[in-house]
Design a protein around this nucleic acid. Structure first.
Lengths: 369, 369
DNA sequence: CAGAGCAGCTAAACCGGTTTATTGAACAAG
DNA sequence: CTTGTTCAATAAACCGGTTTAGCTGCTCTG
């Protein structure tokens, strides 16, 4: 009578067939007559029976679950809009599938044990690798554990796992070009912690765009994706001997903290300083001034990665996947550099794209051709 | 040779005992001689064997996992620092235990199906209920599914499940008193979506503290915990016929958006308007002006709730648990009301607690006696 | 010194599915 | 009227643990 009580044997008895027949009917395997199948399924529905995934997991030697190991200190995790959105994407893909998501949050030094534990206990059929590093030790680990995996962005060219990627560069390139077009020549970058491929991508895009425009290398400060780190990086830049007229941050959180740090120093944004973020946090449109930033479809990223992992775990081949690249969202935190420091920017007001206000329909600027 | 290959039978054979003996030895059950047990465990260690949790799950009829169903739209989820911190707390407690965390993110209308699915598939041994509503339909549902559960904050007095609670009221009461002491008489509240117990608690604390001070009821606007909602609620209050001199928000995100909305209207914080948030998001200390807000130990909350659920799932009784209440953190977004609108606040500068700057050592103000 | 009691261990059933080997019936071909 | 195929369905083995019932040999008791 109780929900979990009914087993395949009950259904078999009620339908007047064997356990095997029920299993075959349910899994749409040949060897069951059409009307028998119909009768079995009807009986199952009447009894409200669904196969126990624990039993299935044991007999099929699959866990029917995917794993996500998150190795970030809680503070950074709490500040980052990436994970909730990413997990929402995973779940959107998992709903209706037979898979569940097993989450494991570990301290960075316990990261490998996190994966080992998932494998040892047979908890998952595959894992999603986020925060991929350029020389990521998890790749050989997972290879040795022979656990299917999908990486978010490609770790190394030699990685044996399919990568599902979002290209951050177009948005950063567009941001730097936008600033250059406005007349900026001193464009600094507040990067994320070294080693991460997306951090490298953003930094490289910034540096190369400056170089391509014939500008000298800008100031580079390494942040840690935290508000505090963003604030102190900003103070360091503003208090330094060569104050930049624009800062491109590797994350919105750092940029928003930078906004406050600038204001504290009496530096007006965007009059004295232009600021660009990255992520398009929901808050970005609702700070003052509204933040020019880069947007990527993180939910879609989660979906695509999960889909790829499902294919991989079912033994099918899975090529790399490229999601749509990040796009620059123009708002109000960027403008021409201050006149007293620079010759007035060639005023090409007509050229400048219209800004959106605090409305939620910011204008997208496509990635450069 | 491969990691997952070794079974209990291999260990039994190698140790020269039966499967049952190995199982007994591993689970520290009587009936195995001390030296035999030692030999078995040594053999297991040598072979690198650990029991397959899938098999254990089937034979013990337990899932060895807890569930967390999150029913929030992705945007709200992405803005909220609560979940990452809470999950970090759960995991901190789960590490080293035999339990894993199964996450399920669903759309609010699919919430019940989320729980049903977890139960039907036998995925979890219990669930944690967050975002508890005053008349929460999940309580009878889980009761009918006979699934152990722990609620974060008490839903109804009649709820059959243990509640692990953090009292938000002391911090809100302290905030409102603090504003009253500064001389404010028009203190508005931007609440969260109706129905949630924590939303009600915060709103009630605000209203009652005003009443207790003999002040007329303040303006109340219902927000939705989103930045956009916070901004529009703020605009509504500032543009209304009776502009408040202080606003207490039910979340930092709404408060931070409120800061920008105020600035947009030319309203200076804290000169023209005092602002109080709730959550102490890492960003709160790094906006301008640094946000006076309430802080609770969400990680500790997650730990306590998980501990309670583990006890409950193992059949032991579990009373309600009270975690330390939220505390008011004074920063720079509150100050005396503008003179032109109010008689100057009784200047009791000496009385006013020292503010902390953008430093990360804000001063706590204990909950009122 | 037989029989009770018990510690220490084994064999086998069991959890609830999936999967393989096998049987039975229907039907076509020889 | 056999014989050979094919399709439908079943019985039983299996996944890898846990758990119960039972067996052995030893000690203790009367």
């Amino acid at each position: 009578m109780r929900s979990g009580r009914i087993t395949i044997a009950d259904v078999a008895r009620a339908a007047g067939v064997s356990k095997g027949a029920v299993s075959f009917a349910l899994n749409e395997r040949p060897g069951v007559a059409v009307d028998t199948r119909k009768r079995i399924l009807q009986t199952a529905a009447d009894l409200g029976w669904a196969p126990n995934q624990r039993a299935r997991a044991l007999s099929t030697s699959r866990a029917l679950a995917f794993g996500l190991v998150v190795a970030r200190p809680p503070e950074i995790l709490a500040e980052d809009a990436f994970f909730p959105a990413f997990i929402a994407g995973i779940e959107a893909e998992l709903v209706g599938s037979e898979y569940a998501l097993v989450l494991q949050v570990v301290t960075p030094d316990q990261e490998h044990n996190g994966y080992r534990r998932l494998v040892r206990d047979g908890r998952v059929d595959g894992v999603l690798l986020t925060d991929v590093r350029t020389d990521d030790s998890r790749i050989p680990l997972l290879q040795s554990l022979s656990l299917p995996a999908v990486t978010l962005n490609r770790a190394q060219p030699t990685s044996p796992f399919p990568a599902v990627s979002i290209d951050d560069k177009p948005a950063v390139i567009a941001a730097v070009r936008h600033l250059i077009d406005l007349g900026h020549r001193d464009i600094a970058h507040v990067a994320g912690p070294s080693g991460y491929v997306h951090v490298v991508a953003r930094r490289t895009a910034w540096a190369e765009t400056l170089a391509a425009a014939g500008l000298p290398p800008g100031s580079l400060v390494q942040g840690d994706f935290s508000a505090r780190g963003g604030a102190s990086a900003t103070r360091w830049l503003l208090d330094g001997p060569h104050r930049p007229t624009a800062i491109v941050y590797a994350s919105d959180i750092m940029a928003i903290a930078g906004l406050a740090a600038a204001r504290e120093r009496g530096v007006d944004v965007p009059r004295d300083l232009s600021v660009v973020g990255f992520d398009d946090t929901p808050l970005a449109a609702h700070v003052h001034p509204a933040l020019t930033t880069a947007r990527a479809d993180v939910v879609g990223w989660g979906r695509a990665a999960t889909r790829a992992l499902a294919r991989l775990a079912s033994g099918r081949a899975q090529p790399d996947v490229d999601c749509p690249p990040a796009e620059l969202i123009l708002r109000h935190s960027t403008g021409p550099p201050p006149r007293r420091r620079r010759a007035a920017a060639k005023r090409t007001a007509a050229e400048r794209p219209t800004r959106t206000g605090l409305s939620d329909r910011p204008q997208k600027q496509g990635s450069p051709a």
